[in-house]
Amino acid sequence: MIKHIKHHLTTPLLMGYAAGTLPEAFNLVVATHISLCDDCRAAQAEFDAIGGETMLDAGSVAMSDDALTATLAKIAQGDAEAVRPQRNGPYPAPLAVYMTDTSKWRKIGGGVSQMLLHTGDRASVRLLKIPAGTAVPDHGHRGTELTLVLQGAFTDAHDRFAVGDIEVANEDMHHMPIAEMGDDCICLSATDAPLAFHGLLPRIAGRIMGI
């Protein structure tokens, strides 16, 4: 847990995470932020509670006659105990799971490296490493971009983002993040830009942001 986190999850992200409707890439960023942020952990509990009460209010549909018997039979089969993943350095447990032996840092230009973690139908997520003092080229966004700082810090025209802070950027936002001096800045970054983006402009997109 980190004190003084200034930039938190938004209501739509918390509600989407509680509802289970976010793309996997966004779920990972939300779970990683909550691992670092007590405020958002408490907020998540609230949104789960809203889900619970909404479910109670959603009516009831009769179960089949033998449902209880069938359920007791399922219980008799037992249930595998889930293994809880472990944190790894600056990488909280939910994120560490995505960093496998085959995950590699790759240079994407301008001194910036990325480690692609997951690409889904709706969104993708990667780690970005920006050397201290380096600027990421000015870029706009298609869809939503989530950027969570794990090490170091960056500033842009809007604000400063340090470890634990999350920036939620929309289509109408252009910015040029600059990594602060000190440690290299490592961020977890998810975008829900359509995959067609990759096919149409692979070189340019790859050079600019590695997406």
């Binding site: 995470y17 509680a18 509802a19 289970g20 976010l22 793309p23 996997e24 779920n27 990972l28 779970a31 990683t32 909550i34 691992s35 952990r41 998540q44 509990a45 789960d48 509670a49 889900g51 619970g52 009460e53 909404t54 479910m55 109670l56 944190r87 909280p92 447990a93 939910p94 994120l95 799971v97 889904g120």
Partner: peptide
Amino acid sequence: STWIFTIARNRRIDMVRKLHRPEPE
């Protein structure tokens, strides 16, 4: 009610949506 909702939500994700939803530490 909250706890059972979270189990139902996770089951729905597993079975219907085939998505992964990492949990916080």
